[in-house]
Write a protein that binds this DNA or RNA. Sequence first.
DNA 1: TCAGAAATATGAGATATCTCATATTATTGT
DNA 2: ACAATAATATGAGATATCTCATATTTCTGA
Lengths: 223, 223
Amino acid sequence: MEIYKNEKRKRYLEDHSIAHLFSFPIVEFVEVREYKRDEWIIQEGMRPDFLFYVIEGKAKIYITHLNGKVSLINFINENEFVGEMELLNDVYYTKGIQATTKTVCFALPFHRCRAQLLEDVVFLRELTKFLSVKATKMAAKYSQTLAFPLENRFAEFILQTADEGVYKEKHITVCDFLGVSYRHLLHVLAQFCDKGYLQKEGRHYRIIKKSALVELAGMLRIE
Amino acid sequence: MEIYKNEKRKRYLEDHSIAHLFSFPIVEFVEVREYKRDEWIIQEGMRPDFLFYVIEGKAKIYITHLNGKVSLINFINENEFVGEMELLNDVYYTKGIQATTKTVCFALPFHRCRAQLLEDVVFLRELTKFLSVKATKMAAKYSQTLAFPLENRFAEFILQTADEGVYKEKHITVCDFLGVSYRHLLHVLAQFCDKGYLQKEGRHYRIIKKSALVELAGMLRIE
DNA sequence: TCAGAAATATGAGATATCTCATATTATTGT
DNA sequence: ACAATAATATGAGATATCTCATATTTCTGA
């Protein structure tokens, strides 16, 4: 992890102002940090001392279960908070946050900001919205997992993450995210290829029959 | 649904003050409502016009999927909000809320309160905490569902809902909540009886070997 | 550049869970 | 008090998903 200082720090703070998220001047408290790919921004079980706001990059939220299984609970993208649970709750089991790519974020130290943050209507309104979206998505994912087999959920995931019609995610990550075994994921993936929905190109998979995937994913749509 | 007026309304408002949740006088806006068991407080897909706060009783959050499956996403208890998602988000698919028992709640009309609520630091702080707990529990449930078979989750559910050592929930409700088929739930329940963890008494089940259930449920514990 | 680690692949058998069919009780409204 | 509805029960076969074992290929650090 690298902390940006002086010019570099200043540039980031100017280019990515977060002043609109607060009603008091926040800049002086902000530490600008860069995490490398695969680096842990927060370690599981270790309470962080900062509230983070992601400026650039992506990260993943992980939790490890007692039976050894690992769940990738969610992805974190730009303009999202990290560590807000610890800001709000004294008792909270801290999940692990790992940078997927190089990630730059603003870090606000709890000990200097907490009181002010919890009094700030602008910040609280932002956070409330953020949390409501988070809770809603989580509930949707949860109920979809219960109601549909992998086929449907995987189809949606492929459509969401495909880059110019090509799916390239790492299988292991996807298994953790969709909560299935490696073996089974590959099995369903092979089916998609057999049925002509996808075509393997080296390590990647080209979407051939998008409509079929759209139909499978469409089942998840709530409404 | 019955709306309490005059004396009855007044008594409820006095006995269950929610003044501490707001920094402005809220009483004049509050409608006191009673829903009967099984009545729908909010119908799925129909945006409500009120923010509810449950005073007495219990309710369930349901969502119906396109494949016809129904998920019981969560239970709602006393001193919890309902309809906060619709207060915060313009676009939101409204889930169905059904009273499990007779339920009394305070209803705040959006059109009269929304602006003030979203400016109120006390309310926002309460709501933020509520949502953070909600999101956290949802995430825990989600990842546990992916990581553990029914056996473990059902054991926990039995321990949580048992009344003086006797489990009495309706199977159908539990299936919707744990996201498994009726058949499979009964199957695991029969196993618990075979193994001597539970003993059937008419329609109910007495917990005989609590330690075994505790061990199964303990696997879910994160940490 | 080479060895170890990570990621990809595939097979085979086990288990968890689902679907459907069908009976037998409770519960409830009129 | 009775018919309709809801809830409980159980069997049997199908499917989704898991575990474990084992190869091969790619990536990465010293």
